[in-house]
Design a protein around this nucleic acid. Structure first.
Lengths: 241, 241
DNA sequence: GTAGCTTCCTGTCAAACTGACAGGAAGTGC
DNA sequence: GCACTTCCTGTCAGTTTGACAGGAAGCTAC
């Protein structure tokens, strides 16, 4: 500060994406196999550096989302997760990475026509298990993403981002059960979810078939924050069998 | 990506601090008057660039905290708030700023012996009012900080960070009332706050005098997350007279 | 000392919410 | 038709919430 000729140091800024979806009733995250060093062969979050010095961070996230996973901007939830800038987290040099949390409904095909062709949906509990090797500090970032999703489910309408535009109440319950790793009583869930003011609203008299009695369809309501919040049961912390 | 000679762009990384405290029963934020262009004379959050290319972000935050406000590392709560990297937010060039949220108990002297001598505690509602000119996008950052504090008060023990090591229940209530901008019933607050498991614990038979009947003292409990959460009343959104 | 003031703390009560559970409604396949 | 599925409505006891009464324990004024 005292030295007028002092110039602040410049660092590389990257964007990493934690993309969540629900598949086979489990919370899964999109990971790519790295084709280059460092961490060649390890799994990593999709992401990359700013394309040019004036690219907005959110634009970078959207661009990577399209390039690496083929997602259009408007079909998913996207929010900032945090910054990860510990020196030494990237062996190539100082890289500050901005992590974004993206949530998408289950898509017809896993990952189609992507730039990084070696991309897979991995259940989060497997991604976080000790014997899965993740590049950089991406294990921590995934863990933070899971934690964020868990708490946001309590007092925001985030769960609907996992669902198609129209969904049934049991589909919504499936989201809560998968992310929280708990079983919920369908009847109490049914009552609760409809009593929270602008959470979900009925979508016409339309119905839908599968196996049993047809279920009513709902769409996301206007409310983003839930009052009163959804009640997370005292953590059995076991994935529902 | 296709061009092997492509080099990712480097940008400047700064750290900004949203430092909250409680003074005169109001939530206040520490702002400094800028002595240099751009935004000379406007109010801004304390902060600065990385001192050297290998400085950790959290270290930068602690260093600025000490330099600009004279706070030691261990006497306050510090957490990451978010990243602000819109191109054009700093007229001098591309700057990506990492905002940290700091919370400190009320201190004997406002701001003593600081580097930036023109620092003041400003009530947040005044800082956010239209006729206060804040530098850069700091208005947005302060607003995000307030919002973060409000929601974290609901389901974390953050409120105790505003208090001295030992505090009374009414002091704790004062925090909730100031940050939420609501009046709470002391009797219900008293009951609720003690029923939440590890939130606060009694600190000896010690007492303390002021004006009326002496109050029992408490210290922060081990629990960081509150189950069940504190209940935020349906937003009158008026500061308590 | 007592009256009057302050703030702190305990207790009560009705309304609302929660968790556990019974059982009927509306589809499917056989 | 029957068995089986899932969806939806209801009941009921235990807990939590919000509103409020009133006593306890300090201070100051007289």
């Amino acid at each position: 500060m005292e030295d007028d000729s002092w110039v602040p140091p410049a660092v590389l800024v990257a964007v990493d994406l934690v993309i969540f979806t629900l598949r086979e009733s489990r919370l899964q995250v999109l990971l790519v196999e790295r084709g280059i060093d460092p961490f060649r062969g390890a799994l990593a979050l999709p992401g990359g550096f700013l394309a040019h010095p004036e690219e907005d961070l959110l634009d970078t996230a959207h661009r990577e989302l399209a390039e690496e996973a083929g997602f259009a901007a408007d079909q998913l939830h996207l929010e900032q997760l945090g910054v990860y800038g510990t020196p030494g987290r990237d062996p190539r040099g100082r890289v500050v990475s901005v992590a974004y949390l993206a949530i998408t409904p289950r898509l017809p095909e896993p990952v189609a026509g992507t730039d990084a062709s070696d991309a897979w949906w991995i259940p989060t509990d497997r991604a976080l298990s000790p014997d899965t090797r993740l590049a950089f500090d991406h294990r921590r970032i995934v863990a933070d993403g899971v934690e964020r999703a868990r708490t946001k489910l309590e007092h925001s309408a985030l769960a609907t981002a996992f669902c198609a535009p129209l969904f049934t109440i049991s589909e919504l319950q499936e989201v809560y059960e998968a992310v929280w790793g708990v079983r919920l009583d369908p009847r109490n869930f049914y009552r609760k979810v409809q009593s929270v003011d602008g959470f979900i609203e009925p979508a016409g008299p339309v119905r839908k078939t599968e196996n049993g009695r047809p279920a009513r369809l709902f769409r996301p309501g206007p409310r983003q924050s839930l009052h009163p919040p959804m009640n997370r049961p005292p953590a059995t912390e076991r994935t529902p069998s």
